[in-house]
Design a protein around this nucleic acid. Structure first.
Lengths: 257, 257
DNA sequence: AAACCAAAAAATGAATGCAAAATGGTCGTG
DNA sequence: CACGACCATTTTGCATTCATTTTTTGGTTT
């Protein structure tokens, strides 16, 4: 994880577990990047990612200031960063809105995530240990159990963790950071839209995961890369089909506030 | 350009016209991020990327304010964004410094770029037109000419453009944006360090490029993905070897201005 | 002479204030 | 009754101001 919040002084020290973007990728041991600005950033990012604001809705500057008990300056800085991360859109003089993900955006995001996971798998095959594979195997069978019990929620969590483990096994912090960023962008969709449709390809997904595990065991890098990309491509199809009827970028004008 | 070098004493009431700026993470229907804030962001980013500040050197807030003719507030916002992009480091109460790229950082960056180009190639094979391939072929032979004439500079430019074309052919704006971001991060190194060593593998690189072109012609997606990743992996080796002797993250403590 | 401590000076981080632009509502007119 | 102009309120963007923190500098001590 990327700790960019360790202030233990005045404000409420919240151990953010959110989505870090690019703080670091530093190779040194100087972890812990305090700054109380990062605190706000993390909290605001979580607030947005968790879906407290409707899709495409306005991000009330003033309101959030009171909510966090700060002035507008640090909040606006955080907004700029969130815009750079792609979570919100910053319109000229019209304030901030949470980014609308249209069909095309989702396709692109899933493809890039596919590419990153593909890369992660390839890199992982170079240096992954038997213990790490064993851990992933454990998660895999756990996930299989949830599949058999038709426990969608737990299945999904195990699934996510497997993919995170693969990314972690790539031993590339830069990759991990970018991956986390993209994951944050589609998290809203993942938990709402993706669910329903994904169920219909449970069996197919499980089979793909077996292939992933198999390739990983054999350290077959480029083969694993292919499988992972295709796996995400299938996920993409499922996710996009879910909001198939809707036009480009108009999921909901949504009542704000 | 919008001349906004206004004296601090005066009000700067400039009717900024909509100048679309190369803003990160922008995909979807409503692109174009005008605002004079984006203007500052772009200019500052260029200023850093172009290498006007020594590696690891301080980013003088006050000085830049005068330079751009603005107050600290918008500049600090831009700094936050640049930090999020990974171009600079923001130390708690100690100001901003241009990020030091150590050996490990370079390895990670090249690998991720490899993953992204690999993805781009894979995607490109799905939809690339004959015309686009022809254009890349043209660049390829142009590059070959420079290779024969031992014209390093032109060779390198053509090379860059080929890779850019492939990324463009992926028709994925999200990918293109992330790729551009990473490219910006290593640009300093690319033009200084990379040169010398890269020369020694010219022949090898040319051969790899032929393979790329061949796979692209046949629209062999996963094959192209493999080749591109390996190609970047070799570049990585060359680049890293160049600053091989140096310890982790200490390329130069650099005398700052 | 080197190290250490203290106070001044500079810089950073955040808050407030103010002008311009946008939003919303009302009134007037066709 | 519908449409458009006008004005008040709200919001955004930037500059300025204030409070800490860091860094430097000068003097002192060992």
């Amino acid at each position: 994880m990327v700790p960019q919040t360790t202030v233990a002084a005045m404000k409420s020290t919240i151990p953010e577990s959110g989505v870090p973007i690019a703080k670091p990728a530093d190779s040194g041991p100087e972890r812990s990047e305090p700054s109380l600005h990062g605190e706000i950033l993390s909290r605001l990012r979580d607030y947005v990612v968790e879906g407290n604001i409707p899709d495409g809705g306005r991000v009330p500057e003033r309101q959030l200031c009171e909510m966090f008990g700060i002035s507008r300056t640090p909040l606006r800085e955080a907004l700029k960063v969130l815009a750079a991360e792609g979570l919100i859109d910053l319109l000229p003089n019209r304030g901030a809105r949470v980014r609308q993900l249209g069909k095309r955006d989702l396709e692109e995001l899933f493809d890039v995530m596919g590419g990153l996971e593909s890369l992660a798998g390839r890199l992982a095959c170079e240096t992954i240990t038997d213990e790490e594979i064993a851990e992933i195997e454990r998660l895999h069978y756990e996930m299989y159990g949830h599949y058999l019990h038709r426990n969608m929620h737990n299945y999904f969590q195990a699934n996510q963790r497997i993919h995170e483990r693969i990314v972690a096994a790539s031993r590339n912090e830069t990759l991990r950071t970018i991956y986390a960023n993209l994951a944050g962008r589609i998290r809203r969709v993942r938990y709402s839209a993706n669910f329903a449709r994904e169920r219909q390809r449970w069996t197919e997904a499980m089979r793909e995961h077996e292939g992933i595990l198999d390739a990983l065991r054999r350290r077959a890098g480029s083969e694993l890369a292919d499988i992972l990309f295709q796996h995400l491509r299938n996920k993409r199809t499922a996710a996009v089909e879910h909001l198939g009827g809707m036009p480009e970028g108009a999921i909901a004008e949504a009542t704000e506030g």
